[in-house]
């Protein structure tokens, strides 16, 4: 159907749309391209001539910036630490938020309005202001400086947005589907895992992507709750230590930006395919 309607367009329309999209995509990509090119240039070139000169004269191409980042001592540990932090934090966020959004979207509960109101308002709480009280609590629980502390923190900070996002997506799942399952005698867990989650895959995929990015790129929560000592420091903390305190270090920062971007981007590309599933993929016809 999609393909068919695509060909229903007049040719010039297709051309026009393609060109427009291409123009926008290129415009959006230029800043990233500037950084990407700079990551392959020497420091003194970056500071003295614009990145576009590289397109004309690329003799100064160098891998040195990447080499110095990749060969940096402890970068492997930092990468693993980032994974250890991000993986569970994302899983927990998605699971707990979906569980909370489920009754908010489908079940009748007291005070659901107040709960939604709270969830929306809580998104505005600046993380910086929660740091000290949370840290006190974590220390009294003996969790200060441990991975569970950051998992819980990232999950908690992600929940208001995630519950809100998932609930708004869940309510567009046709209620008749759930009703039908109920009549077949399915329990709630079954409905949640077998109907609501699969039908909301696009939303869950986008949530997973965002949560992954935010946790992966986080510096503040890691430094405050985990500390930056080598055995626990994630990639962001490690990369911040690669340049001297007073150097601008653009060349190193550019290369490290792309190295740390590889995984989030791969996650994005991987999850993007779930955008086409969701309701349309369901075999159920109403």
């Amino acid at each position: 159907m999609k393909i068919k309607s695509y060909f229903n367009f007049k040719n010039y329309k297709i051309l026009f749309l393609n060109l427009t999209v291409a123009a926008i995509a290129i415009l959006w990509f230029i800043p990233t391209l500037a950084l990407l090119i700079s990551s392959f240039r020497n420091q003194n070139e970056i500071y003295s001539s614009g990145w576009w000169n590289f397109l004309i004269d690329s003799r100064s191409f160098t891998f040195d910036n990447y080499k110095s980042v990749i060969l940096h001592k402890g970068i492997g540990t930092a990468f693993v630490n980032s994974l250890i932090i991000t993986g569970p934090a994302v899983l927990l966020t998605v699971l707990l938020s979906a569980m909370a959004a489920f009754p908010l979207a489908f079940l009748k509960i007291n005070g659901s309005r107040i709960i939604i109101l709270t969830i929306v308002a809580l998104q505005a709480v600046p993380i910086q202001i929660t740091l000290i009280p949370v840290l006190k609590m974590l220390n009294s629980l003996g969790l200060g400086g441990s991975f569970p502390a950051v998992w819980l923190a990232h999950t908690a900070y992600g929940i208001p947005f995630s519950v809100y996002l998932l609930r708004n997506f869940f309510i567009s799942v046709p209620f008749s589907l759930i009703e039908a399952a109920m009549i077949d005698g399915a329990n709630r867990a079954h409905i949640f895992f077998k109907i609501v989650l699969p039908l909301s895959l696009p939303a869950i995929a986008s949530l997973a992507i965002f949560q992954f990015l935010w946790v992966w790129n986080d510096l503040l929560v890691a430094l405050a709750y985990l500390g930056g000592s080598e055995n626990v420091a994630p990639l962001t903390v490690k990369m911040a230590s690669m340049k001297g305190s007073l150097e601008s270090g653009w060349h190193i920062m550019a290369a490290s930006a792309f190295i740390s971007m590889v995984l989030p981007l791969a996650i994005f590309l991987f999850f993007q395919r779930y955008f086409i599933s969701g309701i349309t993929a369901g075999a159920v016809k109403q």
Binding site: N139, G227, G228, S229, S241
Partner: peptide
């Protein structure tokens, strides 16, 4: 020695002093 580098030294010290897990 294990060294933690940060560009926001004051903020991190204040936070961790308040939270009680200073290095």
């Amino acid at each position: 020695v294990s060294f933690e580098t940060t560009r926001d030294l004051d903020a991190i010290i204040e936070t961790r002093a308040g939270g009680g897990n200073l290095p």
